[in-house]
Design a protein around this nucleic acid. Structure first.
Length: 704
DNA sequence: GAGCACTGC
């Protein structure tokens, strides 16, 4: 600890913080910023007037850093130093330094918008630009303006982005704190490989044969490529003459791997053995593997992207940014000098890669965030002109308003409704919180709580993809799991949880049925949390227990499906005449299909129901609706009427300050804020940047 | 007949 680079800057940091409300700290890996900044300010009296909060984008980081700081200060965790993450608050009235996820701080800010318990707020890892961090950045900008001058904000950022953050905070100072990384030699390919699997294979084997000991970390885009490369590596390593080089052991590493497989990379390798770790992005920030000396960087990443005009997500392989490339390279220099092999030329790095990754706020549906901001009731802030470091497109904001209107969270003028206020209390996507409120009214809250909790954990429930034939066998014959009684996936999720409940939450039952234990336990935790919040919101005592009940009846399924229809009024589709394709009703009508993994069944004529609601639209090989529930025409009719009436301009605050028609705005110049004119331009720039990068990528793909 | 990168309240 004593030789952490940041400590040499202690005086400088304190002096700068003393004289400025906001300071940007550029701290490279190993600088000790996460553990030391809070302690430095603590030593200089900043905890006398309040608590120092340090936000982290990830739960594990919040916990482990807090634990470390408690150790260094020799105090009990949860007393002077504590942490708060979802489901777990380890702080007390004694706590002076508090680590928390950015999501938790946003929740706190709902009940205490001034955040006046805190004398200092440190947004750590802000360069990762998580959705929550971006919203916090905007809120902080406002807070430093309206809170007294002894409130301090520190933001840690990456080298390439520091000036931008500083400009955002009216030119606040930027401090550079060097890291403690060893030098990493960067080696570029002469050209882009035709296949980066083959190219990675060749480079990895070359390293293994020629270079001194040290583990190799290879960045790939997804599970498929990882599995292919792992088996090729195994084959190649076996074929090397025995004794010609050291032993090798090869690990895949990605998110859908069960936890016990993930932690294998943390146990030390056998002696005289080189490890190959073939990983997704998970090894870029979330997991740090010790012993890595060589990094192979394909230059690509798989990214989820939202299209606000179609309401559809897609998962695309895209080029990484310079920040990401540098982060990947840094993974080679943690224990001693290393090497990073970039499978692309220097010119590509220099000219093609964006400086920073497109922030999440420009890649995701904003319904939840817009509702959150509306519920804060900031008197001085118009949501559509909210000051973001990178503004989302006006199209994306309009999409959010449209969705919120259809589920009654805002009225036709864009003002938040009582329903919307209640919704914002719930830590859920808007369509799910709307479903809960409706279910509470119609007497199926217990069932809705279960479905909503299952949906929030859905991706972690099923284990990694099994072999195709094995899967088929399981699905068709062997699976003892309920089938949704024909109504679709939501009902199936309900039935699965009710089954587990009737087995007294026996973990063996999960294993027998191929359900991830961790996922199911998470569902239980979410459900419990949601119950508590609903109890608090509702004046009456609620019937919410899942235990000790018989499984739900058909009448209850019907009530639940109706509640789901109200909650998913922004996600309804109508079946086409004479075939089983559907047309979406909320967005530009598009032809979509029920995802093949759905359990929704057809009638005796082989036809699917006329109307469905879906949880998500995802475009893979084709556009699909994932998690589908059959609904009735009479429930959809009022939604259709509402869609027809919809006036987006009115939703965005009336024609006077609509950003869609700048001419109209000029005539009402008093209400025109300089921001309005700029916002669409800024986002268009970003969009055209994405578009250009995409075209370049596609062109290259076509070439090979 | 398809497949899911990674987080978080």
């Amino acid at each position: 600890m004593a030789n952490l680079p940041i400590l040499q800057f202690e005086e400088k940091i304190v002096e700068t913080v003393e004289n400025n409300p906001v300071v940007v700290i550029i701290g490279e890996t190993g600088s000790g910023k996460s553990t030391q900044l809070s302690q430095i300010l603590h030593r200089h009296g900043y905890t006398k007037s309040g608590v120092i909060a340090v936000t982290q984008p990830r739960r594990v980081a919040a916990v482990s850093v807090a634990r470390r700081v408690a150790q260094e200060l020799d105090v009990n965790l949860g007393e002077d130093v504590g942490y708060a993450i979802r489901f777990e608050d380890r702080t007390s009235s004694k706590t002076r330094i508090k680590y928390l996820t950015d999501g938790v701080l946003l929740r706190e800010s709902l009940s205490n918008p001034m955040l006046d318990d805190y004398s200092v707020i440190i947004l750590d890892e802000a360069h990762e630009r998580s959705l929550n961090t971006d919203i916090l950045l905007g809120l902080m900008k406002r807070l430093v303006r309206i809170r007294s001058s002894n409130f301090k904000v520190l933001i840690t950022s990456a080298t390439l982005d520091g000036d931008k953050v500083s400009r955002f905070f009216s030119g606040c100072p930027v401090l550079n704190v060097p890291g403690k990384l060893y030098p990493v030699e960067i080696l570029y390919s002469k050209e882009r490989p035709g296949s980066y699997i083959e190219s990675s294979l060749k480079v990895a084997i070359d390293i293994h044969v020629r270079e001194p000991e040290g583990d190799i970390l290879i960045f790939m885009t997804g599970q498929d490529d990882i599995e292919k490369l792992v088996s090729k590596l195994e084959e190649k390593v076996r074929s090397l003459a025995e004794g010609s080089c050291m032993d090798a052991i090869i690990y895949p590493l990605h998110g859908s791997l069960p936890p016990e497989m993930q932690v294998r990379v943390f146990s030390p390798p056998p002696p005289n053995c080189r490890r190959f770790i073939v990983a997704t992005n998970i090894a870029e920030t979330s997991l740090t593997v010790d012993g890595v000396v060589y990094v192979i960087d394909s230059g690509y990443v798989k990214q989820r992207q939202y299209n606000p005009s179609s309401g559809m997500y897609s998962l695309d392989v895209t080029q990484i940014s310079k920040v990401q490339a540098n982060q990947r390279a840094g993974r080679a220099g943690r224990t001693r000098p290393g090497k990073c092999y970039r499978l692309y030329p220097l010119a590509v790095y220099r000219d093609d890669l964006l400086d920073a990754t497109i922030p999440e706020i420009q890649r995701t549906s904003l319904a939840g965030s817009v509702l959150y901001l509306k519920s804060l009731d900031l008197p001085d802030i118009d949501i559509l002109k909210f000051d973001f470091l990178d503004a989302p497109s006006s199209e994306s904001l309009e999409d959010a308003l449209k969705q919120l209107y259809l589920i009654d969270a805002i009225d036709e003028n864009g003002a938040i409704t009582n329903i919307g206020r209640t919704m914002s209390e719930l830590p859920l996507e808007p369509s799910l919180s709307r479903t809960l409120i409706e279910a509470n009214e119609s007497g199926c809250l217990s069932q809705a709580l279960t479905v909503v909790a299952m949906l929030s954990a859905e991706t972690t429930l099923l284990p990694g993809r099994s072999k195709p034939n094995e899967k088929k066998r399981k699905r068709d014959e062997e699976s003892n799991l309920p089938d949704g009684s024909g109504f679709g996936d939501h009902i199936q999720l309900l039935q699965i949880f009710e089954c587990w409940d009737s087995k007294n939450y026996d973990i063996r039952w999960c294993k027998e049925n191929d359900l991830q234990v961790r996922g199911m336990v998470f569902v239980r935790d979410v459900r419990r949390q949601l119950c508590q919040i609903m109890q608090k919101i509702s004046k009456d005592r609620l019937e919410v227990g899942a235990r000790g009940r018989k499984s739900s009846s058909r009448e209850e399924y019907r009530k639940l499906r109706k509640a789901l229809c109200v909650g998913n009024a922004n996600q309804v589709a109508e079946r086409m005449l004479r075939h089983n394709g559907f047309r979406t009703l909320t967005f530009k009508p598009q032809l979509v299909q029920v995802h093949p993994a759905s359990v929704l069944s057809t009638d005796q004529d082989g036809m699917l129901p006329n109307y469905v609601v879906y949880h998500e639209l995802i475009s893979t090989t084709r556009p699909f609706m994932r998690n589908v529930c059959s609904v009735e025409m009479s429930w959809v009719a009022p939604i259709k009427r509402k869609i027809e009436k919809l006036n987006v301009r009115k939703l965005s605050g009336g024609p006077d300050n609509s950003f869609k028609e700048p001419e109209e705005k000029k005539s009402t110049e008093l209400s025109t804020n300089t921001n309005t004119a700029e916002t669409p331009t800024v986002s268009e720039n970003v969009e055209s940047r994405i578009e250009a990068a995409r075209e370049r990528f596609l062109a290259r793909k076509g070439q090979k």
